[in-house]
Structures are given as structure tokens and as C-alpha cells.
Computed example of a mutant assay.
Amino acid sequence: MKFYSGFTLKNENIYFDKYINKSRYTICGFSYGAIKAIKDVKEHLRDLKRVDTLQLFSPAFFQNRDEKFKKTQIVGFIKNRDLYIENFTKMCFHPYPQKSVEHNEDDIDELRELLFYEWNKNELQEIAQSGVNIEVYLGKKDQIIDTDIAKAFFLEFATLTCIKDANHFLLTS
């Protein structure tokens, strides 16, 4: 199993332990890590390497957000990286108490990629048709992404698990 972390995060996979398929043929990603995971799956398939399952936990889905929102996020990050990450982390845990997370030194280019990434229906269809089981997990109380819009987008290609009282980390308390 390979796990890709969310923006600025590391070792947060413990929060998804009850959902992760631990097979060595599984690739997982949380939030921004979902973008990295899908790129890895496409590379594996190009190289004819086996992948059975792609798991996307609260995938970073911002293609429904306007340019102003995205630019505001970038300006906030540039202006005060530490404050931006502190607020971002609080929003990930909202409405529940914040738990401990480790952070990486991610950069502005990764934030831009996260905000401007366009999920491609044709790519997802090709991945599914190649025999990869796509699983998407969403929390209904997620304050980072619009779960209803993400749900509608991914439902065509994936087995979808929508957790009623869960936040971005899929925690319920």
C-alpha cells in the first residue's frame, strides 16, 4: 500500500486506518495526496504495473471554485504561511477539536496545483475500465471541499462512501 499525504501534512494516514486497504496493490491519497495518488496510478498503468485499488480520501476538489477564491488562498499563503496552515488545519478538523498532525514544508507550487487541478472524467473512466477499483470517501461536515459536488462528480466512476458526521479527516468526533 502506498499513501500520499495532504497539503503540508505527513503521517496523517493514521486517521484513515480503518478505511485503508493494506494490500500492496493499493494506492491511497488524502486531499492533495489524492491528486498525487491518481497520477501514480496512471504511471503504474502506463508501465503495466498492477494496481487493484485507488482510494481517495476527501480528494482536493476545487474545480467548482472561482478564480477569486483560488487567488485569495494563494495570497494568504504567501502573506503568512504559518497562519495559513494553522487556519487550514483547523478547518480540516472542524467542527471537532483539532488533533495533532505533523507538517511538511510544502510550497506555493503545490498549493497552486491543489487549487487548479482539474479532475478528468476520461482519465477516471480509463482507470476504472482497466480494472482498478476506485473508492472515494467523503465527510458530510467537510469544511474544505463541497462534498455534494465532489460526490456527484465521482459517483460515476467510484464506490462512494459518504460519512454523515465526518470532517475532512473523516473523523466524527
Rank of each mutant, 00 (worst) to 15 (best):
S130I: 00
K36P: 03
K68S: 13
A60R: 04
I134W: 02
F62R: 08
I74F: 09
A152K: 15
K151F: 06
I14A: 12
I127D: 08
F77W: 01
I74C: 02
A150E: 01
T172N: 10
H44S: 12
D109E: 15
I163A: 00
D82F: 07
I20N: 02
S173R: 14
Y96Q: 08
Q55S: 05
E118P: 08
L114P: 03
F7P: 00
P95L: 05
G33N: 00
E156G: 04
I149L: 12
T53G: 05
Y32E: 10
D165I: 06
L114E: 02
R81W: 12
I134F: 04
K68F: 12
E156F: 10
K2V: 08
L48K: 15
P95W: 11
R46I: 14
I78R: 14
N80P: 08
F57D: 08
N21R: 01
L83F: 13
K18Q: 14
T161C: 09
K140R: 13
L170Y: 08
Q55C: 07
I35W: 09
N133I: 11
I163P: 03
T53D: 03
K10R: 15
A34Q: 03
K36H: 02
I74G: 00
F157A: 01
K68W: 09
P97G: 12
C162F: 12
N21P: 03
Y32H: 09
T53M: 04
L170R: 08
C28H: 10
E43C: 05
T147Q: 12
E86F: 11
W119C: 06
S173Q: 15
K36D: 04
V75R: 13
